[in-house]
Amino acid sequence: MRIALIEPDARHAELVNRLLFAGGHTCQHFSASAPFLENAADEFFDLLLTENWAGDLPAEDVIPRARAILPNLPVIVLIPEPRESQIVAVLQAGADDCLSKPVRGPEMLARVDALLRRAGLRRPQKRRRDVIGGYAFDAAQCSVSFGDRTVMLTPKEFRLALLLFTNLSRPVSRAHILEAVWMRRRDVPSRTVDTHASRVRTKLQLCPEHGYCLTPLYGFGYQLDAVPPDAIVPGPDAPTM
């Protein structure tokens, strides 16, 4: 499922993102409600996870604004050291559930899945399909479609590509890659990660002339960025007007 996360705390957002990815969901992080509400006008989300203080507004104000754009959007509110009065306030504002922050992985995934089931959004894991930035990810086939072509990836290449796209314009550490792609194995040689990144770059044509740039971050990991059309420098054989 495609989940929006409003979380001002970047470190906690990374934890939630990692847990949701491991649970078979994609997560798009927003540091405040304003960019989420702007994005929701153009994209669809199956569920909203929001901090009780959404960076610029309280959750009680975010919920009705979100549902004015995406009617019936399921919402879970994250509350640090929740008090009864806070829980009552967000539930009365329309939240479907609450979670204590920092989250506990198994509990969060169980509550997310339960809420999605109640909302009628149950979807078999093997048939998940996500479209991000013009790339359609088909988990059943481990394939990615873009433009007029479809390419097949290995399961690890697929998980790495999906991880990079769901963290577009954000650095992804090698530790995060190992946890999400190699399922927490720490004995994977660094060159193996680099080889998979190179294959993903080649197969998905992640180069500036196709609108993306996959950059290795020395001593840290990788970052995938979208390249604005006006920033693309035409090659020597490109036609001139």
Rank of each mutant, 00 (worst) to 15 (best):
S173N: 12
L5F: 11
A22E: 14
N17V: 00
D46V: 04
R149H: 00
T202I: 12
L153Q: 13
S31K: 09
Y135E: 03
A238E: 03
E81A: 03
L15P: 09
L91K: 14
M108K: 05
T50S: 09
T150W: 05
G134D: 12
V233L: 08
T150C: 07
D138P: 07
L37V: 02
I63G: 10
R18M: 11
D42R: 13
L5S: 01
A136L: 13
N72M: 12
P102M: 08
A139L: 13
L121P: 01
A114S: 11
V112C: 05
T150H: 00
F165Y: 06
S198G: 06
E81G: 01
N72A: 14
L206H: 08
A161T: 10
W53I: 06
G221N: 07
L37D: 07
A180K: 08
I69E: 02
L121Y: 12
S143Q: 00
Q223F: 10
S190Q: 11
D113C: 03
R117M: 02
R123H: 09
K126D: 15
K156E: 15
M108V: 07
R174P: 03
M152T: 09
V90K: 12
F45Y: 06
A10Y: 14
L121Q: 14
H210L: 05
T192E: 15
A197R: 00
V90Q: 04
L91T: 10
V144N: 10
R65L: 06
A95V: 08
N39W: 10
A40H: 00
P208E: 01
L116A: 08
I132S: 01
V227A: 12
L168A: 03
R170S: 00
H196V: 13
H29N: 07
F146D: 06
T154W: 11
R129Y: 06
P58T: 03
A32E: 07
A66R: 01
L15Q: 15
L99S: 02
H210F: 09
D97R: 10
E157A: 02
Q86T: 08
C98D: 10
A139I: 05
A140R: 14
P155F: 00
V188S: 11
L48Y: 03
A175G: 15
L168R: 06
R184N: 13
E43H: 15
V172T: 04
P208H: 05
A140S: 08
I79P: 05
L20I: 05
D237T: 00
G211K: 03
L47R: 05
I232V: 10
L163M: 06
V75D: 02
E7C: 15
R128F: 12
A231W: 14
A175E: 15
R111S: 11
A119Y: 08
Y212H: 14
D237L: 09
L109E: 05
P229G: 03
L70Y: 07
G219M: 05
V62W: 10
C213Y: 12
L19F: 11
A34H: 15
L37A: 04
D61S: 07
M152Q: 12
L20Y: 04
